[in-house]
């Protein structure tokens, strides 16, 4: 990104979701990304079997946020032994919903000409942070006041060597928006909001003290079960 350009949303490195041992020679590694508002599952399919693989298809089990493939898995040519291909599957969030444990767990079935294989993976909840998640200042103040203290969760992020402005810019790249910043007793307090694809708002206070690499994040949400996942995204975004 150039000067003044927003950084892209954080996307974790690919990990192996289906080892070849469990996929009769099919290995799948993958990650999730949000690019220009589109959630994508990015996978590498590798044929470690001795015969050609064809007829790929994918299905998701119902999940917490209704993630579903927005189209078929596009593997247009047969996958030869020792061959790898990169596949990008656009997702939407209008599929069937069922609360998962952990909340961001996704159960996937992939078939080819050999068999059907099942695996679970976890997506960073930041994939679901929408581009219009900047709350009006007045609404933020009223909502912050309105949400009970019981729905506030506090977390710490250690070893974070960023200024509050750098942190704010990084978070904005993942659709976590800073609404106000105040400095009290040498501590920067950033008030931030983010909105999930299903309309859940998360309000945050990020505390950054110059020279102290430990940040404190306080999250307030009417659905406090999302706070742990949102915190994990804060940590991943700020540390990558």
């Amino acid at each position: 990104a150039g000067v003044g350009m927003p950084m892209g949303a954080y996307s974790p490195p690919k990990t192996v979701w289906l080892p070849a041992m469990k996929g009769k020679g099919l290995e799948i590694s993958g990650t999730f990304a949000r690019r220009a508002g589109v959630i994508q599952m990015e996978m590498t399919l590798t044929n470690k079997a001795m015969s050609v693989m064809t007829d790929f298809a994918i299905q998701f089990n119902r999940n917490s946020f209704g993630l579903a493939p927005a189209g078929p898995l596009q593997v247009l040519t047969p996958l030869s032994p020792n061959q790898s291909i990169e596949v990008t599957l656009p997702l939407n969030t209008v599929g069937p919903v069922m609360k998962m444990d952990p909340l961001n767990n996704l159960q996937v079935a992939v078939k080819n000409n050999i068999d059907v294989f099942y695996f679970s993976c976890q997506y960073p909840i930041s994939m679901l942070f929408v581009e219009d998640g900047k709350m009006e200042r007045q609404v933020f103040l009223a909502t912050w006041k309105d949400i009970s203290n019981d729905n506030e969760a506090q977390f710490q992020i250690k070893d974070c060597h960023l200024s509050s402005d750098a942190a704010s810019n990084k978070l904005q790249g993942s659709n976590i928006f800073t609404i106000a910043k105040r400095t009290v007793d040498g501590q920067d307090m950033l008030y931030q909001s983010t909105k999930l694809s299903n309309g859940i708002w998360v309000l945050a206070e990020l505390r950054v003290q110059t020279g102290n690499p430990t940040f404190t994040v306080c999250l307030k949400c009417r659905a406090p079960e999302v706070s742990q996942c949102v915190f994990q995204s804060y940590e991943a975004v700020l540390k990558n």
């Binding site: 007045q138 103040l141 912050w144 009290v184 007793d185 307090m189 306080c218």
Partner: peptide, 20 residues
């Protein structure tokens, strides 16, 4: 005036959170 009020409200919020 509204903007001034909101600025002030955020300052009060930050203050109250730091020194409850």
């Amino acid at each position: 005036e509204l903007e001034d009020g909101l600025d002030e409200a955020f300052s009060r919020l930050a203050e109250s959170r730091t020194n409850p």
